[in-house]
Design a protein around this nucleic acid. Structure first.
Lengths: 116, 116
DNA sequence: TCGATACATCGACAGATGTCAATACGACTG
DNA sequence: CAGTCGTATTGACATCTGTCGATGTATCGA
């Protein structure tokens, strides 16, 4: 199964820019910043760690509201941010929406901070 | 219950041992988010890549305003954010303020995203 | 000493962000 | 079908953020 890599561009040449690898084009900087912006909120960091640390690897909103101590709409809002950043996926099963951490997404984000 | 949470494990100190309470989790989540918040702006990502990719490894504000296309106070503001996040250092030499990327800071940030 | 240069800070502003209550929507259940 | 449950959306609000012009501060050169 192939997963979209939010940090990588489609064109082969200017692909894979890293923060540590020299001057970045604006487009690459924006792409990189978009992911880290999603990681720039303590609630979202906690949400990702909760989901990724769960035994099944997936959690629904109702299981997340209590640990983070925020209202349901707020948690829903944060999860939407994470999904749009390519860090989480949403799957509806019955009444529940199950969220997972996208496999490899955090590794890809980390890679943009390391020297090439 | 103690879970190995890649995002919440401290690199050196007080790692994942006795205190896996919620309060400590929040504190670590905040510390992690603070760094990524600084990386969550395309201008700051570009600034870091410019400085880190320069031949001397350091640049002054006057050399940074043109590449990012923003006014001097704005660049100064962004560099302050990066310094406060621990990602850059500032050194005054004569009229100029030279900024460097903190050695190992990006690697440490990356490590908080990787599995233990 | 005077002017120029490099930078930080201030004040202001528009826009983004995090939060919640209220509400709407969809799916199950009786 | 009616009601309940889990989520998403909306609207509202306070706060934060990015940006710039104007101004203050320190340093250097003439």
């Amino acid at each position: 199964m192939t997963i979209a890599l939010p940090l990588l561009t489609e064109d082969g040449t200017a692909c894979c820019g890293t923060v540590a690898g020299g001057a970045l084009e604006s487009e690459q900087a924006e792409r990189i910043a978009r992911v880290f912006k999603a990681l720039g909120d303590p609630t979202r960091v906690k949400l990702l760690s909760l989901i990724g640390g769960s035994d099944t690897g997936e959690m629904c909103i109702c299981d997340l509201t209590d640990p983070v101590g925020l209202a349901q709409p707020t948690v829903s809002h944060h999860m939407k941010q994470l999904v749009e950043a390519g860090l989480a996926t949403r799957e509806q099963r019955g009444k529940w929406a199950y969220f997972r951490v996208v496999d490899g997404a955090l590794q890809n984000a980390a890679r943009t901070l390391l020297p090439e």
